[in-house]
């Protein structure tokens, strides 16, 4: 087939697709859209927008608290996974397999409705129930990320650390983690993005974060398309900012290494 012919066919297909898309879009109910409910140019629109965006701080606070806890927890769980002893490694395996198997939504219900039954003094509010459930669930993934990152460090580094008399924690603190962190950071960034999205599930137990507020507004305005579109954009912006932050951190670490 000549180059000319294939390019003509290519363009033909393209134009065809555009026509099909156009005729489909024409059938949609554009006139029914009511952007005024979230329009900054009207008073009620501004109020609605402010209400929707007011959830950002809870979404962020919950996700960041949860990821901090899950990083610490993940590291603690990763360490036995690096032991030469199969029995100690078992601790890591059991935790990871068990926690990974529980859907986050189920974990949220379990922590919020289940745990308080265990003891009269346990009284978990919605925020902490969400944080605990998110952190627990994420810690299993963090543990795997840490384990892989630490295992990727050259064995010679461990031997050099041993040979200057560093102990287990000295070796970890001064030799392994500073090197592993560069490899851990990208998957950690992914995990943070994942966490931001999963925090929307905490809306089901009444946490007033982004998704909950959107739901409430939908109930009172009957405008799901417009409001959920704003919600999508809110998550999109948050996640783009987080990604940019993680990339900035990665670049900074790399710059440090290659002075």
């Amino acid at each position: 087939m000549s180059k000319r012919l294939s390019s003509i066919i290519g363009w033909g297909v393209f134009v065809g697709l555009v026509l099909i898309a156009w005729s489909f879009l024409r059938t949609l109910n554009w006139d029914d859209l009511a952007w005024y409910v979230v329009s900054p140019s009207t008073e009620s629109g501004r109020q609605n927008l402010a209400f929707l965006m007011g959830g950002v701080k809870y979404t962020l606070l919950m996700s960041i608290t949860a990821i901090c806890i899950s990083i610490v927890l993940g590291l603690i769980i990763a360490l036995p996974g690096l032991s030469p002893s199969p029995n100690v490694r078992m601790i890591n395996r059991v935790y990871v397999e068990l926690v990974r198997a529980v859907p986050i939504l189920v974990l949220i219900f379990w922590v919020y409705y289940g745990l308080p039954i265990l003891h009269d003094d346990i009284n978990i509010n919605v925020f902490w129930a969400g944080v605990i459930a998110l952190a627990l669930s994420d810690s299993a993934f963090e543990a795997e990320i840490f384990r892989a990152g630490i295992q990727s460090i050259d064995k010679g580094q461990l031997e050099a650390a041993d040979s200057i008399g560093l102990g287990y924690f000295g070796r970890l603190r001064y030799v392994i983690l500073p090197q592993a962190i560069r490899r851990i950071l990208p998957p950690l960034g992914n995990q943070l993005v994942y966490m931001l999205k999963m925090s929307s599930l905490v809306s089901v137990i009444g946490m007033e974060e982004l998704t909950r507020r959107a739901n409430e507004l939908v109930v009172s305005t009957y405008r799901p398309l417009e409001i959920y579109t704003v919600l999508v954009l809110e998550y999109l912006v948050l996640i783009l900012i987080v990604s940019a932050g993680v990339r900035w951190l990665e670049r900074k670490l790399q710059a440090n290494e290659s002075v």
């Binding site: 580094q157 040979s163 560093l166």
Partner: peptide, 26 residues
């Protein structure tokens, strides 16, 4: 002391930091 075939210097530390790590921590 041990000197390895592959040097095994700590790549994230400067030469000086490589040298002071053991004396300071051990």
């Amino acid at each position: 002391g041990m000197v390895f075939q592959q040097f095994n210097l700590f790549p994230h530390l400067t030469v000086l930091e490589n040298l002071t790590l053991g004396p300071m921590r051990t």
